[in-house]
Computed example of a mutant assay.
Amino acid sequence: MLETKKMGRPREFDVDEALQAAMELFWRKGYEGTSLTDLTDGMGITRPSLYGTFGNKEELFRKALERYEQGYMGFFREAMKEPTSRAVVEKMMNGYVEALTASCNPGGCFGINAAMACSDAATAIQKAVIEKRKFGEQTLAERMQQAKDEGDLPADCDPVDLARYIMTVSQGMAVQAVAGAGRESLMKVVEMTLRTWPG
């Protein structure tokens, strides 16, 4: 279906499909490893269409990162609603394993794959990914603080340290997934983490 720009000029591609293709390319090849030619070929559009619709490469990446966060990481927000701290972490980590090992995904974590090895020229992109990760860790820490306040976690438990520990294990699983670790082996990591849950 043709979409129409404000000036009445037809846009001969599906914006949603094009953004999905860009996200998968960044996920698979990294920000700097993905060239403009990769993007235009993969998205099925011309460079003028890419710039006109998504802005430059950095802006396109930010849109792809937001799509990843809202869609593939949606389980994180849902996990925060679980009634106990252990249930929160179990749902969150199980969600990570599903996302990291789904056969329809490039594998691993979008943020780690796409931006953690950026050069100085892509510092802004790396910072954007780090800020997303910090926000996730802060959100988890706040949920752990709530659990502590409710008596669900021991009084000597530090919610910030606990959240950092869980996020570190989760990011480690993402690295393992890129290296070929399968769902079964990652689920064992989740089980070990939950076995040592405080309280």
Rank of each mutant, 00 (worst) to 15 (best):
V89I: 10
C157F: 11
K57T: 06
A102C: 02
A141I: 08
K63D: 08
F61H: 02
F135P: 12
L153Q: 06
T101W: 04
Q145W: 12
L140T: 00
E131T: 15
E137N: 05
R86F: 02
T84N: 02
M167D: 13
D120V: 13
E66Q: 15
Q70N: 13
K57G: 06
A64K: 06
M144Y: 14
D149S: 05
A124N: 12
F61N: 01
T123H: 15
A115M: 13
K91N: 14
F110A: 01
R164C: 11
A117E: 09
K91T: 12
M73K: 10
D156C: 08
N105M: 05
R86G: 00
I125W: 02
A124E: 08
C109S: 15
A124C: 12
V160P: 07
E66P: 01
K148R: 06
F75D: 02
A114N: 06
T53A: 00
G95M: 10
P83S: 00
T101N: 03
E137P: 05
L65N: 01
K132A: 15
M73W: 11
C104T: 02
D156S: 07
F61Q: 02
G151I: 11
E137I: 07
Q70C: 09
M144C: 09
G111T: 08
A79S: 09
N105A: 04
A64H: 00
D161S: 15
Q145M: 14
K127Q: 15
L65I: 02
M167T: 10
E150H: 09
S85T: 06
P159M: 01
G107T: 04
M144H: 14
K132Y: 13
E137M: 11
V129F: 06
Q70P: 08
V169D: 07
L162R: 04
A124D: 15
D152A: 05
S119R: 06
I166V: 15
S85R: 04
D156H: 10
V89G: 01
G55R: 01
G151D: 08
G52V: 01
Q145I: 10
D149N: 06
I125P: 06
P106R: 00
R77F: 07
V89N: 05
L100F: 05
G107D: 03
M144D: 12
D120M: 10
G71C: 03
V160Y: 11
C109M: 12
Q146H: 11
E137Q: 10
K57C: 02
Q126K: 15
G136V: 14
T101D: 00
G52N: 00
A102L: 02
M73R: 14
F75Y: 14
R77E: 13
F61D: 03
A124Y: 12
D158A: 01
T139G: 07
R62H: 07
D120S: 12
I130V: 13
P106I: 08
R86T: 05
V169G: 09
C118T: 08
C118V: 07
A147Q: 10
T139A: 14
N105S: 04
E82T: 08
G111H: 10
V88H: 01
N94H: 14
T139M: 13
A102Q: 06
G71P: 01
E78P: 04
E59R: 04
Q138A: 15
I166D: 07
K127D: 13
C157S: 07
V89S: 11
A128H: 04
C157K: 03
E66R: 11
A141G: 01
T53N: 03
R67E: 07
A124I: 12
M73Q: 10
S103N: 00
V97F: 06
G55Y: 05
L65Y: 05
A117K: 15
D120C: 12
Y51N: 09
